[in-house]
Design a protein around this nucleic acid. Structure first.
Length: 403
DNA sequence: CGAGATTCATGTGAAGTATACCTTTAGGCTTAA
DNA sequence: AAGCCTAAAGGTATACTTCACATGAATCTCGTA
């Protein structure tokens, strides 16, 4: 047995690796050039260039579906700007915040607290008035002269949750500042986002606007090839692999991020299997693994009540095999049982209803409100998890709940 | 037969509550002169 | 008297509850053809 292990590890070293530089496929990698986005990058650069003269750049709003290169383009531009700024000793700062991150920036208080934290001020998680936190932030921000570019990614999620007052406050920051200047880049996946916010906020926030169209299959292929060239050792990638990845992502409204992830995970699978080449089969496996990881990751990071709710939905679903329609009431009954079993104090149906809505937002279930006429009104709930990973999912849930 | 009223089961908004945590303040204790 | 620690007071954000009203189509009711 020990010999097997040694053998495996020995082989691992001896074998030619599949990857050359895996970084190129990781999600936080910013490539040296971003294909098919030159125009957008040019525009972003044009908008932010004044920062290098220490003038406040216009606020900017960027729309585009997931994986259309919004974040990459912005980061690429700001990175370049920062390089120049550092070289010339310019007091410039770029802050990137993803508003979706639970317990980091998903409320106004936490967002501002996070901003303060970026400037080295620790703010307690609770207890302070929100405007106090604003003051703390303003004070550090204004403590010395500088230009700040604030990137708020997935800002639509935040506004959805807490309303648009927060945007108003943010746009007002500038008038409170004496030394510094701040300009805001909002990034939204929701193309309709701007229609639902206060027009005054909208006009000041989107002094400039930019839309990122989805990539088509051919562009995706080009992107994948370019990254694959860096990431993999030459000749490792089999015929048709890139095409398949691209096709898969094009199906998902041209999501390049998924395509790249698919390629990376496929590579990892091939590597683990001790294969010499990256084959088309690995992509299928990767597709499943990604989905599985995504779901498991969401599940394990959710609070207990969310797990319990999801568990209830899961059992309700599998109990009612034939008819796929399950409703809030059914779920709630199961939920109460589950609470009794695990010794957790059950929440009200009101709250569970909200939790169901949040699980829907996470894309792990899909719930839509329907009216059943005489038989009332409810949410029709169904799982948005691929059946092949269901067993693993419920296993993970049970483990998380000590069931 | 069809238009309107009714009904059900839950959606949904607003306001209230519990909890955990923050800062400030006032007192009590210690310490050093 | 000054300095330091502690505990109480007064305040907040967040997750949750309570209350009350809103929904919207299947079903019922009843007037009319």
């Amino acid at each position: 047995m020990g010999d097997d292990l040694t053998l495996f590890l020995e082989n691992f070293i001896k074998k030619e690796p599949i990857f050359d530089d895996k970084k190129a496929l990781q999600s936080n990698y910013t490539p040296i050039n971003v294909p098919y986005r030159n125009k957008q990058i040019q525009q972003i650069a044009g908008i932010f260039a004044p920062a290098l003269r220490l003038e406040k750049p216009s606020n900017l709003f960027i729309y585009g579906k997931t994986g259309t290169g919004k974040t990459v383009s912005v980061k690429h531009t700001t990175n370049t700007i920062m390089e120049i700024a550092n070289r010339n000793n310019l007091p410039l700062k770029v802050i990137y915040i993803n508003c979706k991150l639970k317990r980091v920036a998903d409320t106004e208080y936490r967002l501002v607290a996070q901003l303060a934290y970026e400037f080295g001020k620790d703010v307690p998680a609770t207890g302070l008035p929100t405007d106090e936190v604003y003051k703390i932030f303003l004070k550090v921000l204004d403590s010395e002269k500088k230009v700040v570019i604030l990137i708020l990614d997935e800002i639509d999620q935040l506004v959805n949750k807490v309303g648009d007052g927060i945007l108003y406050n943010l746009t007002r920051i500038n008038s409170e500042l004496k030394n510094s200047q701040i300009s805001i880049i909002g990034i939204s996946n929701d193309l309709m986002f701007a229609d639902n916010i206060d027009p005054r906020v909208k006009s000041s926030l989107s002094e400039e606007e930019l839309v990122f169209p989805p990539y088509n299959a051919i562009q995706l292929q080009k992107i994948l090839r370019e990254r694959a060239k860096i990431a993999f050792r030459g000749g490792v990638v089999a015929e048709g692999v890139i095409e398949k990845c691209a096709a898969y992502a094009a199906r998902e409204h041209g999501d390049a991020r998924r395509a790249l992830e698919l390629l990376r995970v496929a590579g990892e699978i091939a590597e683990r299997k001790n294969e010499n080449n990256l084959l088309v089969e690995h992509i299928d496996e990767a597709e499943e693994k990604i989905e599985r990881d995504r779901v498991l990751d969401i599940i394990t990071t959710q609070p207990k009540q969310f797990k319990l709710t999801l568990y209830s939905i899961l059992t309700t679903c599998s109990d009612s095999k034939g008819d796929k329609q399950i409703f809030t009431g059914d779920v709630y009954e199961v939920y109460k049982d589950a609470c009794a079993k695990t010794g957790v104090k059950p929440l009200t149906q009101r709250r569970v209803s909200d939790i169901i809505a949040e699980l829907d937002m996470l894309g792990i279930i899909s719930a839509r409100v329907i009216s059943k006429g005489r038989y009332g009104r409810t949410k029709e709930i169904s799982l948005a998890i691929h059946p092949s990973i269901l067993p693993k999912t419920s296993e993970a849930l049970k483990e998380g709940l000590n069931l």
